[in-house]
């Protein structure tokens, strides 16, 4: 297995290189000159030239790309154009708030989705199944923004159950601030997950081993919990594990609307302010996390399904 992991890690290098190249081209070759953002409205040509020199933007593109690659390898992404702070520090500051929202929301979504899927599959074709499907489609069809606007107005402003927005770095106060966005996350994500898990579990129910189990006289709950659930775990696992690393990146919309100072909000600000070093760092980080997620999924397959062999 370790050989497989090593091979996958090595094979991800060209992928990362490709991502890095693409990001570099997008922001350094096709985009505008970021220096104009930083110099202010009264800048002279000399000041602009000085700043371009300072940031190495007057160097040949190949030199700039090599420097960027060096930053990726050393995880020293330099400083933000907008805040002039080290990007590494900004990321470390943002991870906590992002995960405070993402972890409970993700766990709750996953638990609820698996439970609901089991219920609707157990009652497949009957009214609980139909109701579940209708609710899932409804949940998926309504944009997250609508949930946010309604949630803030109804539960935050009118009923006063939750803070309308904001964040408190202290514990456990911060949980109060992420409660409403976390519930909105659950409302939006559960629909997608239930649909996906339901399909996967129904597929399992059609397999020969289920018929065999029934023929042997096993009750439906037993078949469900002992056999179908375990075998149906592979697609569930794929969906769950692949998402875990990406949780770090936060939620763009939720963080922005609820004033949570996480990485999602940081990325939106960087996009608004054309803060290229932050954008390229977050994009590269996203690619690395995606690769890690994929690899972790493949490795965990072997745990849940002994038939899968990594080679």
């Amino acid at each position: 297995m370790w050989v497989y992991v090593l091979r996958r890690v090595l094979s991800s290098i060209p992928t990362l290189f490709g991502v890095a190249l693409l990001v570099f081209i997008l922001f350094h070759v096709m985009g505008g000159d970021p220096v104009y953002q930083m110099v202010g409205k009264h800048a002279s040509a000399q000041q602009i030239a000085d700043l371009r020199h300072e940031y190495g933007l007057d160097q040949p593109k190949t030199t700039q790309f090599l420097r960027y690659l060096q930053q990726v390898v050393t995880f020293d992404f330099g400083r933000s154009y907008a805040t002039r702070q080290p990007i590494r520090q900004m990321i470390l500051n943002g991870i906590g708030p992002s995960l405070t929202l993402a972890i409970p929301a993700f766990i709750l979504t996953t638990v609820l989705s698996v439970l609901i899927s089991l219920v609707v599959v157990y009652f497949r074709g009957r009214w609980p199944d139909r109701l579940g499907v209708v609710l899932c489609v409804l949940g998926m069809s309504v944009p997250m923004l609508a949930y946010i606007l309604l949630g803030q107005y109804l539960f935050g402003y009118k009923l006063g159950w939750f803070p309308i927005s904001g964040f408190d770095a202290g514990w456990p106060q911060r949980l109060g601030y992420v409660a409403l966005p976390a519930l909105i996350w659950v409302a939006v994500a559960t629909g997608y997950d239930v649909r996906f898990y339901r399909t996967a579990l129904i597929e399992e129910l059609g397999n020969d081993y289920v018929r065999t189990a029934r023929a042997k006289g096993l009750g439906e709950p037993g078949i469900f919990l002992k056999h179908v659930l375990k075998n149906g775990m592979i697609p569930v696992l794929t969906n769950v594990v692949i998402q875990i690393p990406l949780l770090i990146l936060g939620s763009f919309l939720l963080e922005r609307f609820f004033g949570i100072p996480g990485l999602g909000s940081m990325m939106i600000d960087a996009l608004h302010g054309s803060d290229f070093p932050v954008i390229r760092t977050m994009t590269t980080l996203g690619a690395i996390l995606m690769i890690i997620g994929n690899l972790a999924t493949d490795v965990l397959y072997t745990v849940f399904d002994p038939r899968v062999r990594l080679s």
Partner: peptide
């Protein structure tokens, strides 16, 4: 097992609301 999970979910939601209301009281 299923019942246990539902109970856990309820507990989590209850806690979130409790923390929220606590937060609201603090910002009175």
């Amino acid at each position: 097992m299923v019942c246990g999970s539902i109970s856990l979910t309820r507990t989590v939601i209850g806690l979130l609301i409790a923390f929220s209301i606590q937060g609201c009281v603090k910002s009175a």
